[in-house]
Amino acid sequence: MRLRTRNHIELSCEEACPLVAMLRPRSGAQQWVIAERYDVQPWVPATEYIDCYGNLCQRFTLPQGKSAITVEHEVEVADQLDVDRRADRIPPGMLPDEVLLYLLQSRYCPSDKMAERAEKIVEGCPPGYAQAERIASWIRDNIDYKYGVSEESTCALDTLEDGAGVCRDFAHVGVALCRSLQMPARVVVGYLHRLEPMDMHAWYEVFLGGRWFAFDATQDKPRGGRVVVAHGRDAADVAFLSNYGPLDLTKMDVSVSLA
């Protein structure tokens, strides 16, 4: 499946504002970037680096006043998510070095406080994909998708208590529950074809059987058509804009279509 993504962001700042953007997907085993356009108006000098999670980060300083960032990509992606119910949980002592950090609790995923709940949810499931799949189904059945309930400081425990949230909250709960069962998990942000309402989207991946599998508790079945922009321990690692000064986001328009 070949997708075209477009993200137009309008910003306003009272004074020059340093900014790190995370808006460029990388080519890899699960997707291939065919073409892209990245425009900043007014144009400013920029640099790019790869962070410790492998994400492409663009660094620049916006001038005082109004600015706009427009990012367009054409990406080849899978039209279906991989499913392997035989994928086993790998014991921590056998995990690759770079995966171990995804077992640790993090700012929005306090997995060290969620083991008892996770064990009740997966009762009767063999370790591995079946447990991860049960967790995603439980989240979908027990947490309402609702705007205005959560805020930037909301963690997985808050979402469980509120019983509602948006895609990033669903992902945090899934990650925290999986980690509490010693299954490495990470938050993913990007685009999903035919998402309603259209926006940037968040889901999560679990490391099983030697590879990462995607889970999205906001959807009623495994759906492909995803463009991954970034992944990390939780939302703190994958913010699409990180500003180091006062900055107002006045408009964001996202679209995803078949190429």
Rank of each mutant, 00 (worst) to 15 (best):
168 R>W: 13
132 A>M: 02
159 T>A: 02
152 E>K: 02
149 V>K: 10
209 G>C: 14
156 A>C: 08
149 V>P: 00
137 S>L: 13
203 W>S: 09
174 G>L: 09
198 M>Q: 15
195 L>M: 15
212 W>P: 02
145 Y>H: 08
183 M>I: 13
143 I>V: 15
178 C>F: 06
203 W>F: 12
193 H>G: 00
137 S>I: 00
169 D>I: 07
206 V>G: 07
149 V>L: 06
138 W>S: 02
192 L>D: 04
201 H>W: 12
137 S>G: 08
140 R>W: 01
217 A>T: 00
163 G>H: 10
154 T>F: 03
149 V>D: 01
216 D>C: 00
151 E>W: 08
212 W>S: 04
201 H>S: 02
194 R>H: 14
185 A>W: 05
143 I>T: 04
170 F>C: 06
161 E>R: 10
176 A>C: 10
217 A>C: 03
216 D>T: 00
159 T>M: 02
146 K>A: 12
209 G>V: 14
193 H>N: 11
169 D>L: 06
201 H>L: 05
170 F>T: 06
166 V>I: 13
182 Q>T: 13
153 S>I: 05
140 R>H: 14
125 C>A: 12
199 D>M: 09
199 D>K: 06
167 C>M: 11
205 E>L: 06
150 S>V: 03
132 A>P: 00
139 I>A: 03
155 C>E: 00
183 M>P: 02
217 A>W: 00
208 L>W: 04
124 G>P: 15
124 G>K: 09
156 A>I: 10
185 A>P: 11
216 D>H: 01
196 E>I: 13
199 D>G: 12
159 T>S: 02
202 A>H: 08
184 P>N: 13
165 G>L: 04
135 I>K: 05
195 L>C: 11
200 M>S: 04
146 K>L: 15
215 F>E: 01
199 D>E: 15
182 Q>H: 12
125 C>K: 15
141 D>M: 08
197 P>E: 08
197 P>W: 15
166 V>Y: 11
154 T>K: 08
189 V>D: 03
164 A>C: 05
128 G>D: 06
125 C>D: 10
205 E>W: 06
135 I>M: 08
127 P>G: 08
214 A>Y: 00
151 E>N: 10
131 Q>C: 05
163 G>Q: 09
142 N>D: 11
177 L>V: 03
158 D>F: 03
130 A>P: 01
215 F>T: 00
147 Y>G: 03
135 I>Q: 07
